[in-house]
Computed example of a mutant assay.
Amino acid sequence: MVMLREGMCPGLHEDLVRDLRGAGVKTVEDLVSSDIEELAQKCSVSYKALFAIRRVLLAQHTAFPVSGADLYEELLSSTAILSTGNPSLDKLLDSGLYTGEITELSGGPGSGKSQVCFGVAVRISHHLKQSVIYIDTTGGLTASRLLQMLQAETSNAEEQMEALQRIHIFRLFDVYSVLDCLHSLCSGGLQRASVGGGSVKAVILDSVSAVISPLLGGKQNEGMSLMIQVAGVLKTMAKDFNIAALVTNHVTRGGSGEVQPGLGVTWAHIPRTRVLLERVENAVSLHGHSSLRSATLIKSSRQACHIKEQFDLQWWSRSPDRSSGKRKLEETQLESSA
């Protein structure tokens, strides 16, 4: 379900949205299935104006058939691949994060989800010189950690500050604020974030489960609706603006005790690629705890599922010369990687 909101189309202003809700019409589905003449009388609005709004909403939210050839041509012309900066993760993801898609990192506490997101943000902002939107819903992102990663990439203080300026951080702790932010980004926020700092190439939502999980379960149908809305805006943003969407998710235990991503079956259809992160058991470092992690591909349209790679969370804090000779193309067109 798509909730009606102000500005979805011309004529749908705040007062009308309030009147429609008072008449029991809260979603696009409610409006398009209503008797427009009767609804116009209830809301004291002209039949012509309400009919025009209904027609626009139908056009926006009705699916139209597209040929496979058209989809493939669009894929070749628009999709880019963004390196995560880590060779093992890039190998698992078939070269990196794909624009136009949602990629999910799931894992328990301490599995490294946020650290990977920090590394991706630093990689895109410093090496690609492009902007990143980072939506932090847990309060885990700090400027000092980003700066530490950047200092491992370059000793030039000016370059460090320029890269930090290209990472636009939003601290939001409820799903309504997240939805408002995503809608604002689609309505001009992405363009504003691009001014003077390269175009936005990635939107990172860390974590999506932190703001949605509390609303799910029992009879809380609103939570499911809000989850679907978040998914819809992320998909639209990724496709329409040619950016990579990266989200993090918690994990739960399945019926037989296996670890699996949270948010249920409905959400499972949303990400195009899903990666499960876990600590590597019995791995001990000099500091008493290991930064070694295991990444398992559990959903992909390009790679065989259940393949695994190991990587070190300290990779993004390495010295610049440690990986010389291993750097790869940061952003490539899909046809060049075929």
Rank of each mutant, 00 (worst) to 15 (best):
E153A: 13
K326M: 13
E38V: 10
G264Q: 05
G22N: 12
Q165N: 15
T332L: 12
V66Y: 00
A245Q: 06
N156L: 10
L190G: 03
Q148N: 03
A238P: 00
Y176W: 14
H183Q: 13
S336F: 11
A40L: 04
E37K: 15
L141Q: 08
P261Y: 14
D321S: 07
P10Q: 12
L334M: 12
G11Y: 08
S256L: 11
L16F: 04
I167Y: 01
C43R: 03
G264V: 04
D94Q: 08
R54D: 07
S67V: 01
V175G: 02
T252Y: 09
S83G: 12
E309P: 04
L71F: 00
I36T: 15
A304K: 02
L286W: 01
I270F: 06
L105P: 15
L4T: 02
S225H: 07
N249M: 09
K328A: 10
V251G: 13
S301P: 11
L58G: 11
A40W: 04
K328V: 09
A210P: 06
G11V: 13
Y98S: 11
V284Y: 05
S213N: 12
E14M: 12
S194E: 13
D312W: 04
R123G: 03
E153V: 13
Y134A: 13
G85K: 09
K48P: 00
H269C: 14
S106V: 07
A338P: 02
T332Q: 14
H127G: 00
K48N: 08
I270W: 00
I307G: 03
P109M: 06
L50G: 01
T248I: 09
T99M: 08
T137M: 05
F51C: 07
H127D: 04
Q220F: 07
T27R: 01
L172P: 01
P261N: 10
G198M: 00
V247N: 05
G112I: 00
S67C: 11
S78H: 09
L50F: 01
S317D: 12
H127A: 10
L128Q: 09
L97Y: 00
G107W: 07
L16Q: 08
Q229A: 01
V259P: 10
M1S: 13
T138F: 05
D15C: 02
I124F: 00
T138L: 10
F51L: 15
R171V: 06
A210L: 05
A210D: 08
Q130C: 12
G68Y: 03
S78Q: 11
A63L: 14
G96P: 05
V32M: 11
K48L: 14
S285A: 14
R18H: 06
S294G: 03
R171E: 03
G24P: 09
C181R: 01
G139N: 07
G198I: 02
K235Y: 05
G11M: 11
